[in-house]
Design a protein around this nucleic acid. Structure first.
Lengths: 262, 262
DNA sequence: CGCTAGTGTTTCGCTATGCGCAACCCAACG
DNA sequence: CGTTGGGTTGCGCATAGCGAAACACTAGCG
């Protein structure tokens, strides 16, 4: 190797070349689905034989598998066995806690974490903001999907047969509650487009919230984080001001759950 | 040459030592949850420094993460990203997805898809039912064969030499777990006869499941689909009610894998 | 049919790579 | 403040693993 004293690439400290290359192979396979040795070799910038040996090493431990003899390769079930051990300790609430706390500090408002549960949004964690007047605790509460920002975020990517089933009656809680189905559909399309959902005075008059979806390793929406407070504080300027913070929180949480942005 | 003459050759050809060791580290972490460098080093039979460098290489690519600075290590989110890509590419999962979803809708319970992998049942996909409280994700988990409906379904057609080998110890998880071999044999015969397997309170008290095997073009059992939920909901009537749905799902899936009913 | 143009695999000799050693930091005890 | 017990970091040697080239096999094609 051409040893420049200032070895500028990656991290100079204790990297094991072949392990690093092997991991790159795994990531390439994750991206491409299947790939041949030659392709992997060129993308890695190494010789065919090297790639072949690395892939064999991975294959013996079932991290990759050959689609057919003398054929191309793809990721194997060994990965899944490892993933099982990872998800076992992966608690959504636990991972979300510090992020929600940070978000509550920067925005000063109440932050909630919700999941979809039996036709409703279930609040599973809450951090009260600094400027909260009365800190009512929503944890454990089921709230209607069509009248809350979290609900809309959780619904946003549901396909049609499921959507109608999980949605029940669109009951009105305030004059602003969405009760017509096609208006809700349009709103969900907007959520998909912009990446966040809103609800102003739709569940309670005077209560406004903004929410964004959290994704897992499969890219599916598994949870939702919301920032909520009295409507008079949620002016358009204020909202566009706190949106980046919200987005950063859900991005970080999605990353922690294994999601990789496309 | 420090290798012992009785080098219990894993496979003589093309193994890359450091990659192999790195994978062993991942598996050790999967088993232990968290582990320190020294512990890993002794279990691997290498020097501390070697283990440290291997772990660092894995850490830079987020396959492992340090629980706190200068602390122990555990598996990282990189694994989850790879796992997400893995299931997306296994054809079995692709085919099974819509069928499992349909089954989850009609039964309202959680549906799992499992395969036999290294002496255990490995869950490779899951669709949560409507009446599930929190959607705990079992994907990637490997569960004992003799204490689960999926395990019994997967074992049901194994011939004798293989059967004893894949079955390990028949450890008891609850008072209802089957621990005697001939009782298990009788149960497997019943599975063959009726075409489905059951497990009530055998892995966890309060958890019941029904499963049926999936066959491929050669007629061999390659996977298993289960419907599971709290035991109090799984009355005999309820079971005989949802059995046709389960049977239809596995029949369709077997057909998709190329199986032709005799 | 050979002939080429692709694969993936294997052998071999050389040297960069990664190993063991030991010295090191840094925290937690007592 | 030593001492113990973690994880981390230079260093020099040798071996593990690399690249080149030959090999095996399949598929397309004139």
């Amino acid at each position: 190797m051409s040893w420049t004293p200032t070895d500028q690439d990656r991290d100079t400290a204790g990297t094991v070349q072949s392990v690093d290359r092997a991991i790159t192979i795994l990531e390439l396979l994750a991206r491409h689905g299947v790939a041949g040795v030659t392709q992997l070799a060129t993308e890695l910038g190494v010789h065919k034989s090297t790639a072949s040996r690395l892939v064999s090493a991975l294959e013996q431990r079932t991290l990759v598998e050959q689609v057919e003899d003398r054929g191309k390769y793809r990721l194997g079930v060994g990965i899944l066995r490892l993933a099982g051990a990872t998800t076992a300790r992966l608690d959504l609430v636990q991972e979300a806690r510090p992020l929600c706390r940070r978000l509550a500090v920067t925005t000063g408002e109440t932050v909630n974490l919700a999941v979809l549960s039996g036709g409703a949004a279930l609040y599973i964690d809450q951090v009260a903001g600094a400027s909260t007047l009365s800190s009512y605790n929503w944890v454990g509460q089921h709230v209607p999907l069509h009248a809350t920002s979290n609900g809309k975020a959780l619904l946003s990517e549901l396909a049609e047969p499921d959507l109608t089933r999980t949605l029940g009656e669109l009951t009105a809680y305030t004059p602003s509650t969405i009760t017509e189905r096609n208006r809700l559909d349009r709103e969900l399309a907007a959520v998909r487009e912009h990446g966040y959902a809103m609800a102003t005075d739709e569940l309670d008059v005077g209560l406004t919230a903004v929410a964004a979806p959290v994704r897992d390793a499969h890219g599916e929406v598994v949870a939702s984080v919301s920032v909520s407070g009295p409507s008079f504080r949620f002016t358009p300027e204020r909202i566009s001001q706190l949106l980046p913070d919200l987005r950063r929180a859900v991005d970080d949480l999605s990353a922690a759950m294994g999601y990789r942005a496309p």
